[in-house]
């Protein structure tokens, strides 16, 4: 399946397929309706069942408990030995190796490679059989999931990247607007993550997105740490030629802007420092990411921060490589 290969894969090229074998659970791809036989079933009947359903193995249940598995190989042996009147109980492989329904799919890939069996019964936490898994279930499950995701992503990308082409105006831009609550560390980063996601869907080059994301995140954290009760606003204007990030709050303002820009200067309280912020690098970082930065913050009043990041070349966004 190409999953176990050992060649180097950089993070950006880890395929969705690689991720999916770890993310999907066996229960999500197994066959739930399982045809079963009992130890008393004859081998002749087994042959009919295998033929009728085009399957290669059947779990054997006794009083609802899994006791064995009977496969096409067992049938061939019985045929060769003229033992078609024998009962399943005599010919089956008892105590088959099983897999748990909540294990990741990658474990089943490993099992198929290791044991060479064509199927594994799947059991729940109580050890009761709830399904069966074949290599074809794995392949189909992965393909189905990939197809659904690809389709969703395609629609999203199509919609996003065509916005600039479909709208006719002298000047088109997308304006995103987020309200940031003061001291709300639980929500911290939500605006930045959403802006980053939108830029990604628009197919903007990754280095540009990264600069915009870092600048936004530092600005968002600053509002959360430093503002009074009212919090502030984060905006992002996405134009074909530039991204303009705005951060606006109603105070208290910055006492000394030059001092605040100095690396290492911070007025953040200790609890903020213990969270890994407030080390006095925020404005330095923002400045580093910006092509242009405008900061106005009369002490005791509102703070306005505007960061401009230009797109590499002056290409329309819709035509950029995703």
């Amino acid at each position: 399946m190409g999953i176990q290969n050992n060649s180097a894969i950089p993070a950006s090229q880890i395929t969705r397929l690689h991720e999916l074998v770890y993310e999907l659970e066996i229960s999500q791809v197994m066959t739930r309706e399982v045809i079963t036989v009992t130890p008393q079933t004859s081998m002749t009947e087994v042959r009919e069942i295998l033929q009728r359903h085009r399957i290669s193995g059947i779990p054997v249940l006794e009083h609802g408990e899994l006791v064995g598995i009977i496969s096409i190989e067992d049938l061939i042996k019985a045929l060769a030995g003229g033992e078609m009147d024998a009962r399943v109980g005599e010919k089956m492989t008892p105590n088959p190796i099983v897999l748990s329904a909540n294990e990741p799919l990658v474990l089943s890939v490993d099992y198929f490679n290791r044991y060479g069996f064509g199927r594994f019964p799947i059991v729940n936490e109580q050890g009761k059989m709830v399904g069966i898994l074949t290599p074809s279930d794995v392949t189909q499950g992965l393909l189905k999931k990939l197809e659904v995701e690809y389709h969703e992503e395609e629609i999203r990308r199509y919609r996003a990247s065509h916005i600039f082409e479909d709208v006719i105006s002298d000047h088109t831009s997308i304006f995103l607007h987020y309200i940031i609550a003061s001291r709300d560390f639980k929500q911290a980063g939500a605006a930045s993550r959403n802006i980053k996601r939108t830029l990604t869907h628009l197919g903007i080059p990754r280095p540009i997105i990264r600069r915009a994301a870092i600048a936004t995140y530092e600005a968002e954290i600053n509002i959360i740490i430093h503002t009074d009760d009212f919090g502030g606003l984060i905006t992002a204007e996405i134009r074909p030629d530039a991204i303009i990030i705005g951060a606006l709050d109603l105070g208290p303002g910055i006492a000394d802007v030059e001092q605040a820009k100095r690396r290492g200067f911070s007025t953040a309280p200790d609890w903020i420092r213990e969270m890994g912020f407030g080390a006095g690098m925020g404005l330095t970082n923002i400045e580093k990411c910006a092509d242009e930065m405008y900061l106005e913050s009369p002490f005791g009043s509102r703070t306005t921060l505007r960061v401009t990041i230009y797109m590499d070349e002056h290409l329309p966004i819709g035509r950029r490589e995703a």
Partner: peptide, 24 residues
Amino acid sequence: TKIAKLDMDVTHISAADLMSDVLA
């Protein structure tokens, strides 16, 4: 996490407790 990405190739490590340092 359920996310694993065990096969990705990594060449660099950053060590820090200060998030701004990571961002920078």
